[in-house]
Structures are given as C-alpha cells and as structure tokens.
Design a protein around this nucleic acid. Sequence first.
RNA 1: GGUGAGGUGGCUGAGUGGUCGAAAGCACAUCUUUGCUAAAGAUGCGUAGCCUUAACAGCUACCGAGGGUUCGAAUCCCUCCCUCACCGCCA
Length: 423
Amino acid sequence: MLDIRLIRENPDLIKQRLANRGGDHASMVDELVSIDTARRTAETERQKLQGDRNRISKEIGIAKKNGQDTSTIETEVRSINERIEQIGLDADSADMRQKDLLLSIPNLPHEACPVGHSAEENPEVRTWGSKPEYDFQPKDHTILGTSLGMLDFEAGVKITGSAFVVYRGPGARLERALINFLLDLHSTQHGYTEVNTPHLVRPECLVGTGQLPKFGDQVYHSPEDDLYLIPTAEVPVTNLHREEILRLEQLPICYAAYTPCFRREAGSAGLGTRGLIRMHQFDKVELVKITTPESSMDELEKLTANAEKVLQTLGLHYRVIELCTGDIGFGSAKTYDIEVWAPGQGTYLEVSSCSSFGDYQARRMNLRYKAEDGKNRFCHTLNGSGTALARLFVALVETYQQADGSIVIPEALRAYFGSEKIG
RNA sequence: GGUGAGGUGGCUGAGUGGUCGAAAGCACAUCUUUGCUAAAGAUGCGUAGCCUUAACAGCUACCGAGGGUUCGAAUCCCUCCCUCACCGCCA
C-alpha cells in the first residue's frame, strides 16, 4: 500500500502516476484524502477527550483517598465517556474506510517503468538463442506427452476437473527432475536459501502480498478454517518475515522455494489455452528477495538474470520483455517477463515474471529493517519465478522433440532425469 | 480432541483495580573514572498515531487478540488464539 502521508501531501502527483496504469484511480485518491482529514479530526477530538477523562479519573482516585465525595465529578466523566463513544464511531468508521481504500489502490509504477497502455507496448529488452529449426513439422506437447505416456489429461478431468492434469511415468519423473534441478541451481549457484513452506495460508498473508482484498475470487478458500491455497510461493515466502524488524546485516534475504500453485482462473475459462499452458494447479520454483530500498533495483536485475540462467542452462530460446505501466501487476513497481519459445505452439510462453514491489508489500505486512541511523524503515520486496514448471515442461518437450516423436533430455538435466531420452 | 499451567518491553522477570508504559536484572548506546584485557559509576534505551516545532516537548493508544464491568483495567469477567506438559489419536 502507498504511504498515506505521500498521498496527503501530493495527491495530484499520485493521481498522475496512477493514471499511467489506466483505469480510474483518481476518485479513490480524492476520497482517501477527504476521509483522511475526517479521520484525523475525529481522532484528535477523541484523544483530547480521553486525556480529559484520564486526568479527572486520577483526581477521583486522589479525592477518594482523602475521603471526599466524588459523585459530581463522576457524572462529569460519564458525560465525557458518552462523547468519546460518539466521536469514536466516526473515527473508527473513517479509519476502516481509509484502510480499505489504501489496500485497494495499486502501487505506483517506478520511474524506470516504461509508460504504455497495454501489453502491445511492452518493450523487448533482449533475446537469447534463436528459434530452433526442424526438418519436420514440430508437434504440440499434448500430442507428444500423451503418446509417450507422460501426460494424462483425461485422468486429470476424471479425478478433479478441467485444467487439472496427471503426470505419469517419464512425465512425472521429468517434472520431479526439473524441480530438483531448479532448486539446486538457485541454492548452490545463486546464493538463495531453500525453503519449504505450507501450501495453505492465513488471509493476512494474502493481504500482505496484495492478493486480498481485491483478488479474493482468484484464490481457493477453505471457509471452515479460513485458510487459502497459495496461488504462488511468493505468498508464504514473502510473509515469512511479516511484522518483523530485520537487522541491516541480514539483508538481502534470498529465498528459493518449490510449491504447487493453485489458481481459480475465474473469468478465463475456455480462453483458448491448450494442454498445460493454463492450469488450476501447477508447479513453480519461486525466488524471493527482501532488500534495502537502495539495492532493490540492482537486485531485480540479478533476480532476472538468475531466472534466465535456467533457460540458458537448458538451452531454450527466450526473450525478456519489460512490462509497461499499463500492464504491470497490481503491487508491482517494475516487472520483467521472461518468455520461452515453444516450437509446437509457435509462440513465446511466459515462464517467469520478475518484479520489484518497492515498499508496497512491506507496508502491507509491516516488514521493516533497522537502518544505519537507527530508524525503522520499510524493506523492499521482490520476487520472480525461477521458473514456472508446466510451461517450462512444454517448451522443453517441444524444443527437444525428434522426428520419430522421441524427446532428447538436455545435458544439464540427465543426472536428474536418469536417462538421455524419452521414447 | 481432553486436562492442567502459562502468554508483560530485545531477553529474563516483578506487578491482582487508581500518579504503571510498567520494578529489577541482562543486553545495547553515549559519557566519566580507574587502569589493562577487565571492572566501576552516570545517563539514555519500546512501537504506532495525533498535534506541533527551528529544535525540544506534549497528548493518545498498546502488558497474546477481541469484547465486557468500572469514574478508572496489565490487574476483575467472557470468548478466541498461541505456547508448554501429560493423555488420546495419527503419517
């Protein structure tokens, strides 16, 4: 969430910067400013009355000790209490509305974030490798995976529903090999600490990273326990340090985590996505960093490079694009997407989204560090996929398919997979 | 799930209705002193909000969370959460 002081002092600047995202946020900012004034007026009045009450109550204590009659003065306090209760209603409702508004306003795009209206205006930053050429018509992963006994889409529908899949045999093994490869790469080569977190979280965690309150319809929820299935490991991992004040020496904190991710994808049913590309459940290795404000932009570059290393090591052609202001996520200040080439699809697939959130998430989860001057400051948080598994699986299978329908396992993965080819 | 004991500042730990935001100790910071590898003394040392300022200060809230009783709650009552121990159950 944004700093209310900043909004209070520069409402027009805030409106202008939010306008780059598209959509109407100006009216929310206006309401926020007026509700903030109302809240502070009521709050000041309440505090003054509370001060009066405290002072008089002490007098009562002293008077009683001296055996004096206190009935008149007690009546006075009672009337003060009535006023406190009344003004308190105003203060509390304004406070709730203000919090609600603050949680519903997206982050300011970073100055370095390119201005644009939609995904069409996302600049390409760089590419790596080139599109592989085949002397046959490359097949789609669903055909390859089904015929090799790796993927069973029908079984996924049978036991759960559409957009769920069963990996089997070499498919299950390949998925597991990829997870191990990714975790090993980031933890031994890139300096991330591996963590293994719960897949169910409290609502506060989702508020902390920004999924709640606005995007509750995209998350699976168990009402009996008020727990949510995580849509990404970003949620439990970033919230690991919620409500903490970290020491400067601890930063940056770098975590790598494998988890399945659960997404309802409400509103995007039947969106023309075939096979593994958009599932309700998919595996992902996520990278999370908690940094100082000064270093977060550098850390974003490193994080993105760490994710790119995955595709380089596997020999997969990809491009990096930068999201423009009209396309970045709700909480993000700056985002790079990494898109891998999938020959069977004839298109690039987003396998990683690397973002710096500035202090937006840290404010929501009250995550701070003690700065050199002894002051408590909000940390910056970052995360990026390192990478999403299902689409990586697609790109890998489609890229390394052979004319006879078999798949060659890239060198770096063979020790994990246990053989050189499938089929 | 059952029974019992607890949850107080960075830590330990006092505090059972009134000047308690909270004793004491530890840790930490600054200073002083003696001196030499240690010690003594002084002062300071929570978080957030409000209101102000050149700065200081002031006010309010916070003793697991929420609600209640009261003129007044860390202290009394209710509900919930968590921790520990034992029992039950279980991968």
